[in-house]
Amino acid sequence: MSDSPRGVVRHCPFCAEEDLWPVEEPAGGWECRACARVFTVRLDRVEAQHIPGRVAEEAALGREEQP
């Protein structure tokens, strides 16, 4: 999705601690020093049609387009 270096991870998805450090391998990986796990987080896509505000916005636009 993006070529930005790495997103900021706020807590470990395994133990919820915040003692995280970036690692070189794997690329984009994070090391949790509380539970000793190394992990990556990847965003595949955002399903825009499932966002409630977006659904309401598109419905309103559809009503405006009708004569």
Rank of each mutant, 00 (worst) to 15 (best):
E31C: 12
H11F: 13
E18S: 13
A34N: 14
C15N: 12
G28V: 00
G7R: 09
W21M: 09
P26E: 04
A59M: 02
V41L: 13
F14V: 11
R54D: 00
A48G: 01
H11M: 10
F14H: 12
V8I: 12
P52H: 06
P22L: 14
F39N: 10
V46Q: 05
R42H: 06
E31S: 15
L61Y: 05
E58L: 02
R37W: 07
D44V: 01
P26W: 03
G62T: 06
R6C: 09
P67Q: 04
A36Q: 13
G53A: 11
V9H: 08
E47S: 05
E58P: 01
W30Y: 15
E25K: 14
A48F: 03
V41N: 08
E47L: 08
F39L: 09
G29Y: 04
P5K: 12
E57T: 02
R10T: 10
A56Y: 04
P5T: 12
E18T: 15
E58Q: 07
V38K: 12
S4H: 05
R42E: 10
I51M: 02
C35M: 02
R54Y: 01
V55R: 13
A27T: 13
R6Q: 13
P13A: 03
A48M: 05
G62M: 02
P5M: 11
Q66H: 07
Q49T: 15
G29N: 11
E31W: 14
V46T: 08
A60H: 10
A34E: 04
P52L: 06
M1I: 04
E17M: 06
P5G: 10
P52E: 08
E31P: 05
Q49M: 14
R54C: 00
A27W: 02
G53W: 00
A34I: 00
R42W: 04
P26K: 10
E17K: 14
V23S: 10
E47D: 11
E18K: 15
L20E: 03
E65F: 04
